[in-house]
Every structure is written in C-alpha cells, then in structure tokens.
Amino acid sequence: MWTLFHKFGSPPWLYRLSGAILRWLLPITLLALVAGAVWGLLFTPPDFRQGNSYRIIYIHVPAAVVALAGYYVMAIAGAVSLIWRMKMADIAMRACAPIGAALTFVALVTGSIWGKPTWGTWWVWDARITSMLILFFLYLGVVALYEAYENKALAAKACAVLSLVGTVNIPIIYKSVDWWYSLHQPASIKFTGGSTIDPSMLYPLLFMISAFYCLFVCALLLNMRVEILEREQRTAWVRALATERGGS
C-alpha cells in the first residue's frame, strides 16, 4: 500500500501508467460518448410535455454531475498535496480546475438553450442554474488564484486551501440557494423530479453520465501528462523519452 502510494509520487511511473490507461480508456470513452448520444437522441421516446427539447439533458445533466464531482476530486487532490506534500497531487489538482470549469460552462450553456423552449427565455434564476453558476465562479476563482502566484509550488498549496474551503461551502451554498428559490418562486415551474423519469429515458442518461466520468478521467490524465513533461523537462527520463520519440 505504502509503496504504491510512493509510486504515485514518482513522475515517470505515473507518466507510463497514465499512458497505458489512456491507450484503452480514450477509445472506450469516445465510443461511449457517441453511443450514448445516439441512444439518447434517437432511440428514446419524446417527453409528453416537452417534446424533443428535453433530450439536451443527455449533455446537460452528465456535465453538471461530473462538474460537481470534479470539484471534490480537486479538493481531495489538494488535501493530499497539503498533508503529504506530493508533487503529483499538485499537478492533479491544477489539472482539475480548467476541466471542471469547462464542464460547468457546458452545463450552463445547455441549461440556457434548454430554457429557451421550456421557459421562453434564455436565462432563468432557477435554483439549479444559479448553483451551477456559483460552481463556475468557484472554479474560476481557483484558476485565477493559481495564475496569480508566480511560485507554482505555492500556487498549488493556496489552491488546495481554497478548494477545501469550497468543499465545506458547496453543500451550504446549494441548500441556501434551494431554499432561496423555494421562497421566491412558486413551485409550478419546478419539474424533472429524478424519481418520475421513465427507465427508457433514465438508462441512456446513466450511460452518458458514466461516459462523462470517463471523459473527465481522460482529460485529467492528458492534462497531467503535459504538466509532468513540462515540469520534468530537464530530467534524464524525459530527455530519453524525447530522443526515443525523435529517433523513431
């Protein structure tokens, strides 16, 4: 267990492992995304109230779910970086922020596109959309803080503290926003209760959520590999790798 933990701290080992994982995970992810999209968009029945416009949930919901989970991945990486001072945890945390921000942005845009036919306007201060917007701000805050530090080792520690503060706050923010929404809006436009969804619509959704998790892992690993190479560019193993690639 402990040796495995130490191995995770070793850049060449992680670089090779991530390469091996990506070799099969990347095609699987692409295949799953295409399959899930086709399943969700073509082979599910239309909603009796919203017609076909609801189908955007096959992008919107997975993006939102994975974006939220991504914040916790970032915070856990941050905690590891603060407690065990592991360089690879720094890199993982740093890689999470832009991916999470992008996913949150996708969720916001698709939510807004969905809102146009459903509510007749591009933007509604709905509880979920507002929470997503705040999550987007939280991600951008981490990115901004990281960029503001010149010393990147310190930047990672500062972002780790910020993301840990964020994990304590996210449930509070979500509950507050939920409560605020129920106070200010009549319940009539509340819909898509998760429990009432028909299995024929639910299964492709769950499939897409899994595919988005794979996508997140792929993006994370690819992002980390670039960062590892950049940080370790002067070490012997990266030089060996470069000459090996250059020679072949």
């Binding site: 805050g141 503001a148 507050s176 926003v177």
Partner: peptide
C-alpha cells in the same frame, strides 16, 4: 481566508473578490 491567501500577491484587491464572493452568498440569502 481570502485575505490570507492573497496577501503575498502584489495585486490582490480584485482577486480576493473573485475568491470570496461565492462564499458570501449564503450569508446574503439568509
């Protein structure tokens, strides 16, 4: 928290708002 994280930076003023305002929202609501 925001002040502690940004105090070492030369231009902390704007950054602290970006970091901290989301955390202020529940207090504003209640």
């Amino acid at each position: 928290i925001g002040a502690a994280l940004t105090v070492g930076l030369k231009r902390g003023g704007m950054l602290i708002s970006l970091l901290i305002l989301p955390f202020y929202m529940p207090v504003l609501i209640f």
